[in-house]
């Protein structure tokens, strides 16, 4: 195991959305804009990395019969920290993300990684794994948020910088409403499946 390939694995093969298919709720709900996507991933990344480190450091002490409740308590503690920090320093972001910041507690990605990875590996690799998975999550959320914002409003505005403006404004309002989320993730998932099939056909 070398750290770099462990890091890359979180973005490609174990990508939380397209590989493991975990944490769909925040992926669909907060990706109405790139800005929200970044805020959500930042919160999730902090909780994921901290809980991975913590669980991994305590993995010899945690009795396996009650490990899940202990994981949830650890995660809930870090989520409370994130919630208070966001409420205090980024109130507009907190208002936009709403109930999904406290709901990081029940994001399957975090407890899934605690159970599947941090519980079995040392602190350093758990940290790398958390970093890789968070990066994968960030990239997917930004991709979905970008597609929806661009088609829905005609431009991408992130933290007061206009990144891209389309020459004609398509303004398909549906894209920033709930159906747009299902359409985007369904299409992206179909493309990923198609690529996987092509690769498999080539390999054997």
């Amino acid at each position: 195991m070398d750290p770099l390939s462990e890091y890359i694995r979180g973005i490609t093969r174990d990508n939380p959305i397209f590989g493991l298919v975990l944490g769909l709720c925040p992926t669909l709900a907060v990706t109405t804009s790139v800005e929200n996507a970044i805020g959500m991933s930042a919160g999730t990344a902090f909780v994921l990395i901290c809980s991975n480190i913590f669980v991994s450091a305590l993995r010899k002490q945690i009795p396996s019969a009650v490990r899940l409740p202990i994981f949830i308590i650890i995660i809930a503690t870090f989520v409370s920290i994130v919630k208070m920090i966001m409420q205090a320093y980024f109130p507009p972001m907190y208002a936009a993300l709403g109930v999904f910041i406290p709901l990081i507690v029940v994001n399957c990605i975090i407890i899934g990684r605690a159970e599947a990875y941090a519980n079995k590996n040392n602190v350093f690799y758990s940290f790398i794994d958390g970093l890789g998975i968070s990066t994968g999550f960030l990239l997917v959320l930004m991709l979905i948020g970008g597609i929806r914002e661009l088609l829905g409003t005609g431009q991408i505005v992130t933290f007061d910088y206009t990144l891209i403006t389309l020459p004609i404004n398509p303004s398909v309002t549906t894209m920033i409403l709930p159906p747009g989320a299902f359409l985007t993730i369904g299409s992206l998932m179909a493309i990923v499946n198609y690529q996987k099939e092509k690769k498999r056909a080539k390999g054997g």
């Binding site: 709930p178 159906p179 299902f182 993730i185 369904g186 299409s187 499946n193 099939e197």
Partner: peptide
Amino acid sequence: PSAIRGLPQAFFIALMLSMAFV
């Protein structure tokens, strides 16, 4: 098409239901 079978298909069904609800 086999690429759409499974999850993508589920999401497309959800898309139509969601449109109706919205």
